[in-house]
Simulated assay, not measured.
Amino acid sequence: MLVFILNAGSSSLKYQLMNPVNKKVFAQGLCERIGIDGVLKHEFGEKELEMKIDMPTHKEAIESVLSTLTNGEGKVIDSINDIEAIGHRAVHGGEEFSGSVLVTEKVIETMRRLIPLAPLHNPANIMGMEICQELMPGKPNVAVFDTAFHQTMPDYAYMYALPYEQYTKHAIRKYGFHGTSHFFVSNEARQMLDKKHNTRIIVCHLGNGSSVSAVLDGKSIDTSMGLTPVQGLMMGTRAGDVGAGALQYMMSQEGLTIDEALNVMNKKSGIVGISGKSSDLREVLDGAAAGDDRCRLAIDMIAYKIKHYVGAYAAALDGVDAICFTGGIGENAALIREKVCAGLDFMGVVIDPVKNNKRSKEARDIATPASSGRIFVIPTNEEYVIANDTYKVVTTTGN
């Protein structure tokens, strides 16, 4: 089955064309600056194309992608009729979706109702679904939710200690995100452990957005992100865990509205806020190496926050069989992995400095042979999860 995978953002969209049965990727790319001037970056085989294309809306962007896939130098299929299904990344499914579903009017209506929980993401996700329905009528569309994997969390883990009515009236609780990545990486770790039962895995998805999850026997029992992605770890521009009192005090001292304060929390904090240099960890690592103390502080804070959650989740899991690192930072920043794992000998987890500093695009174990808990670096593949879920939903429903 040939699946068109779409991840629609507010002013950009990522895409991939894949056969999930054999994991063959025919093409992938990115549309940027939608509504401004439009840039399409298209990769196929060993080749790359970059084109400036007028994209006033997402519709023109998706039309441009489909045209590039079927015509000219970037052609990889003869017709859009070769596409058998469309898989969509959907950010927030609330409590309504515990798995991937065929897109129907009822599903879209439910996602619209959940927009207050993800005002930046759900509208763009819905737009992508509706445009694909228009441009490829009759083709099944499947929504794959970031939050679905974490719907197995027990109530004592996902509830906030607010008045209970805030949950019953407004569904205020922890939902978690990066679910497709946490699912993929934890499942890969179970294969690497060659242990299917009583597996205790901690996944550290570290990138511009970061989260940690505790996965018991393949099911999420806790995760660091909450009602929204701002909770949890310190990230590229997000603050992560900040006490409500600190937020209120900052607002009163700076004369900020709640929207202005949330803008600070989401876009001006985290790595960029502490380092004062960049939200890109590579630049901050270079700054620390050159003696910049704020960059050094940012690195120490990042590692400490991750380690804090690793320790908490090891306790929640009653031990740990594997700690996994994934995402742009998790896969590439050896120093962060080293700092997170330093001192975890008491848990039976010991990192091998030589293995840790070797670069590879393959999944690997960087723990010492004597370590009772393994340390895995596993490249994530969220697009495969979306494509495979789409394949399973479509074949199961007979579409």
Score class of each variant (00 low, 15 high):
residue 159 M to W: 10
residue 273 G to D: 07
residue 298 A to K: 03
residue 366 I to K: 01
residue 299 I to R: 02
residue 291 G to R: 08
residue 207 G to K: 02
residue 19 N to L: 00
residue 155 D to R: 13
residue 277 K to S: 14
residue 335 L to M: 14
residue 101 V to C: 10
residue 289 A to H: 15
residue 246 A to I: 09
residue 254 E to P: 08
residue 385 V to S: 00
residue 83 I to A: 03
residue 157 A to P: 05
residue 48 E to I: 15
residue 311 G to F: 07
residue 257 T to F: 08
residue 62 I to M: 08
residue 136 M to L: 11
residue 9 G to K: 10
residue 165 E to M: 11
residue 161 A to V: 12
residue 137 P to M: 11
residue 307 K to Y: 10
residue 314 A to K: 10
residue 165 E to T: 13
residue 27 A to Y: 03
residue 41 K to G: 06
residue 356 N to V: 06
residue 369 P to N: 10
residue 16 Q to A: 02
residue 57 T to N: 15
residue 381 N to P: 04
residue 383 E to T: 00
residue 157 A to L: 07
residue 55 M to C: 11
residue 148 A to Q: 01
residue 343 G to S: 08
residue 168 T to N: 12
residue 398 G to N: 09
residue 166 Q to V: 12
residue 174 K to F: 05
residue 221 I to W: 03
residue 370 A to Q: 13
residue 206 L to N: 01
residue 237 T to M: 10
residue 257 T to G: 10
residue 80 I to N: 12
residue 231 Q to D: 09
residue 365 D to I: 06
residue 297 L to N: 05
residue 304 Y to E: 11
residue 206 L to H: 03
residue 241 D to W: 03
residue 372 S to N: 11
residue 239 A to T: 04
residue 135 L to M: 11
residue 327 G to W: 03
residue 369 P to D: 07
residue 8 A to N: 08
residue 316 A to R: 08
residue 390 T to A: 01
residue 3 V to H: 00
residue 38 G to W: 09
residue 328 G to S: 12
residue 203 V to Q: 01
residue 288 A to R: 06
residue 57 T to W: 15
residue 213 S to D: 01
residue 395 T to E: 05
residue 186 S to P: 01
residue 213 S to M: 03
residue 34 I to K: 04
residue 358 K to Q: 13
residue 134 E to C: 09
residue 321 D to W: 05
residue 186 S to T: 04
residue 96 E to C: 13
residue 165 E to S: 15
residue 233 L to Q: 01
residue 358 K to S: 12
residue 239 A to F: 02
residue 249 Y to E: 11
residue 45 G to P: 12
residue 335 L to K: 09
residue 259 D to C: 11
residue 318 D to F: 15
residue 49 L to V: 15
residue 103 V to Y: 03
residue 219 K to R: 09
residue 149 F to I: 03
residue 344 L to I: 12
residue 135 L to W: 05
residue 383 E to L: 00
residue 266 N to P: 08
residue 148 A to F: 02
residue 182 H to K: 08
residue 64 S to D: 07
residue 283 E to N: 14
residue 14 K to Y: 08
residue 367 A to P: 02
residue 396 T to Q: 15
residue 194 D to K: 13
residue 129 M to Q: 06
residue 380 T to R: 03
residue 238 R to Y: 05
residue 339 K to R: 07
residue 19 N to C: 00
residue 311 G to R: 04
residue 183 F to S: 02
residue 298 A to N: 04
residue 249 Y to C: 13
residue 75 K to V: 11
residue 33 R to N: 07
residue 274 I to W: 07
residue 164 Y to M: 15
residue 52 K to S: 14
residue 115 I to S: 09
residue 266 N to G: 06
residue 249 Y to F: 14
residue 207 G to F: 04
